[in-house]
Write a protein that binds this DNA or RNA. Structure first.
Lengths: 224, 224
DNA sequence: TCACTTGTTTGACCGGCGTCAAGAAGGGTT
DNA sequence: AACCCTTCTTGACGCCGGTCAAACAAGTGA
């Protein structure tokens, strides 16, 4: 971990994001004034479950895994945040300790927004409150989607879904945006299970070479 | 379904709730003016997945199940709302169709708050926005909890958890607040699996007679 | 009270997925 | 290239929990 300056690409990422994208320039600058930027290596811990945190985190680049640990020591991912996503608002607004740990899933640059400042802005600035509301709705839907997938679909179906939603409509192949390791976690699977799912999908025209996924029959995947 | 007047106990329920509880009297009345109240029988459908809805729902009494249906026809519950809970905000704020169906899990009385009105209030009234933000954080945490439970715990552990969190600290027994059927759905289990979990817990000092649950050894449950 | 419907439990079976262990394949480094 | 270390794949095995079927219990209404 290492403190940094906000680069111009970082600003671009912020402006493109769901949350900051809808704020007027001045508010945007206002929030940013309370922010600090740091770099993390893969596996670095941003915060740990049960710690009390008072900041909101924003992924400027890289990837962050949110995971909970069970009392037997195993851990389960409850969310995965790519570039442009914001997280850890819940702890702040509910005045609670973190319900999960945040770990960099690859080398990442993270902005830390001062929680108090954000909370104060949310209480006085309509635009901020509005943006926050939409952000929270979006996040709620995300986890609800995950829950429903877990309960309704088999491993292979979840993987098929993931491939379909990540391969551009007009393309026949794409690169996984992260290690299979991480993907397994996101889908609630052991790495072995992911591997097996891929090999099941081979008979539906899916080729996997490293991180490169090729689809030869979209419909076969949709049927799954 | 049947249109009703708001009774005084209904008002009490509203005032006790997380969302309305933090609003000043006048705002409270303002929101309520746009509301309509109806009664539903068990299994009545409030709205169906993929329908476009423009209201927010509030459980005045009874119980509502939110469930998604997979393409194979099976369905999975993603939330269960007892008296005092509010739901279906996501569709409104994200301008989306419902991602799940809402079904009364027992005879229920439901208030429907006008979505446009609420959205307008959220955009102009700080108190409303604030209450909404906390409500959404709470809801987000709820589903995240469910997801984590699903991924970390076995059926028996989930049931043990449920019992512990629903039996008052100072008591040795309690009544299930709803049918086992419904509980199974909430825990992401088939009814049979719930039944078996109960019978496993018998050897840890749990007695089940109808809806009455007796705990003879709290620690045994916590150890699970 | 009895009949009928609906909910719950139990047994049998089996498929999905986690776990352990071993081997294969990449990716870096020297 | 040879080496190491990490990630990924494959096989073997076992358990958890879903499904089907049947017995049983509890409500509900006449």
């Amino acid at each position: 971990m290492n403190t940094l300056q906000l680069t111009s690409t970082d600003r671009a990422t912020l402006i493109r994001s769901r949350f900051f994208g809808r704020l007027p320039q001045s508010t945007f600058e206002d929030v940013l004034n309370s922010a600090s930027v740091s770099a993390y290596e893969e596996r670095d811990v941003l915060f740990r479950q049960d710690e009390s945190i008072n900041d909101v985190f924003f992924v400027l680049s890289g990837l962050v895994r949110l995971c909970r640990l069970g009392k037997d020591g195993r851990e389960a991912d409850v969310a995965l945040f790519p570039e442009g996503e914001m997280f850890a608002e819940t702890a702040m607004f509910l005045r609670q300790r973190a319900t999960a740990s945040a770990v960099a899933a690859k080398r990442s640059v993270i902005a830390r927004l001062n929680g108090g400042k954000l909370q104060q802005l949310a209480a006085t600035d309509h635009e901020v409150a509005q943006a926050l509301i939409e952000h929270l709705c979006y996040r709620g839907k995300m986890t609800e989607d995950l829950l429903a997938e877990d309960r309704l679909l088999t491993a292979t179906q979840r993987v098929a879904n993931f491939i379909l939603s990540h391969c551009p409509e007009d393309s026949t192949s794409f690169r996984l945006p992260f290690q299979k390791n991480i993907l397994a976690g996101k889908l609630g699977l052991a790495p072995e299970a992911l591997s097996r799912a891929f090999s099941t999908l081979r008979q539906s025209g899916v080729t996997v070479r490293g991180r490169l996924i090729e689809i030869h029959d979209r419909h076969a995947l949709e049927r799954y």
